[in-house]
């Protein structure tokens, strides 16, 4: 994936803090205990990891760290899991029906998300939703393989539908 490093360095401290919290949470889930000694060890490890890897990791820089971001995250997760279930029912129907109803096409989809993490989340979401698979990401254009592309009337509008339902929520907490 073509990831270009973010140039703005304004919120470096906040990004570092975010990375630290993510690593620490990961540690706590792995150890699976709330023992103080475990948490202190985890904090030290997370600090070392943050300090050594922060200059090389640009992927975390796209996150908006505000309390306002919680609602979009919940919305996004809800939409995401709902779409994932729909995708599976849709795929099961296609796979099991004897005539194998497919009209595959590769289409281009544009996105407004700029940060690498935002585009990664969008690409992954598209891959897991009904009948679409992200093939390539080039800057702000996603190449999407579509199992059931409507016959070529108004393809622009139809593709927009794929992205907007995720983009709307992703924009709330990612740049």
């Amino acid at each position: 994936m073509a990831t270009k490093p973010e140039t703005e360095e304004g919120s470096g401290l906040a990004d570092g803090l975010f990375l630290f919290v993510v690593v620490l949470l990961f540690w706590m889930l792995l150890t699976g205990s709330l023992d103080p000694s475990e948490i202190i060890t985890g904090a030290v490890v997370a600090l070392v990891v943050t300090l050594t890897s922060r200059p090389h990791l640009s992927i975390y820089s796209g996150v908006r760290i505000t309390p306002m971001a919680i609602l979009p995250i919940i919305n996004y997760l809800g939409v995401f899991f709902w779409e994932l279930i729909l995708a599976n029912i849709d795929m099961a129907r296609r796979v099991l029906s004897p005539s194998l109803p497919l009209r595959p096409a590769v289409v281009e989809v544009r996105t407004d998300l700029r940060s690498p993490l935002g585009r990664l989340a969008l690409a992954n979401s598209i891959t897991l939703t009904p009948g679409t698979l992200t093939v390539d990401v080039q800057d702000q254009t996603l190449l999407v393989h579509w199992v059931d592309a409507p016959p070529d009337i108004d393809i622009e509008n139809a593709t927009r539908k794929i992205t907007t339902k995720f983009e709307r929520h992703l924009k709330g907490f990612l740049k």
């Binding site: 599976n88 497919l102 009948g131 698979l133």
Partner: peptide, 11 residues
């Protein structure tokens, strides 16, 4: 292969 990937990934 693309459709196979789709079926494989989601399910």
């Amino acid at each position: 292969v693309y459709n196979r990937i789709q079926a494989g990934t989601k399910a």
